[in-house]
């Protein structure tokens, strides 16, 4: 089963290595891991999707909390309580004979065409993991030439209590960028 973890970390060089190393060493199977900046320059946010049972996911959370650079870890609940988004770029073979059919499908999936070449289209699609998989499956018969996905970015719906509590203890202006690996 897949579990979604949101990990807030110091924005320092090497933090991604620490997190990835932890998952590798403990044998937690990463489905996707994305990282990016947040509303606060000194904090990064990772979304990690792990394929594992509930107990192992919980242990992954406890291991993450032992990393000095980790501010807080949230294990998002399953189902509709989260917004989970993935972005895909799909280069699909679409010569003149098939082009209109492909464009129709793009419409149905509310995706966008971002590049048009003689025999191919590049389609951009944002959505849940399921939606993207469905689009990919639908386009497969036309011939997918290249597929790139960002991996999931996730957020709980509503106002989760834990985040407010979690981020509060962060002090600013203490660590300098070059200090920590």
């Amino acid at each position: 089963m897949s579990h979604v973890l949101v990990v807030y970390t110091d924005d320092e060089p090497g933090v991604l290595t620490r997190v990835a190393s932890l998952f590798r060493r403990r044998g937690f199977n990463i489905h996707s891991l994305t990282v990016g900046p947040t509303e606060r320059p000194e904090v990064s946010r990772m979304t990690v999707v792990v394929d594992t049972d509930e107990a192992t996911a919980r242990r992954a959370v406890e291991h993450l909390r032992k990393l000095v650079n980790v501010l807080e870890v949230q294990q998002l609940g399953s189902g509709g309580v989260n917004v989970v988004r993935d972005l895909a770029l799909i280069r699909v073979s679409a010569g003149p004979s098939k082009r209109s059919e492909v464009l129709q499908l793009v419409e149905v999936f509310r995706a966008n065409v971002v590049d048009i070449a003689e025999d191919t289209l590049v389609i951009e699609c944002t959505g849940s993991l399921a939606k993207i998989e469905a689009l990919v499956d639908t386009l497969r018969p036309f011939g997918i030439i290249e597929l790139g996905r960002t991996g999931a970015v996730a957020m709980a719906r509503g106002t989760p209590v834990s985040r407010k509590a979690a981020i509060a203890p962060l002090r600013t202006g203490t660590s300098s960028g070059s200090m920590s690996v």
């Binding site: 032992k66 990393l67 300098s176 070059s178 200090m179 920590s180 690996v181």
Partner: peptide
């Protein structure tokens, strides 16, 4: 290790 540091500036020695 529990944690480690690469220090490249004298002013980061004491905090590390």
């Amino acid at each position: 290790t529990k944690h480690n540091y690469l220090v490249t500036r004298a002013e980061d020695v004491v905090p590390a």
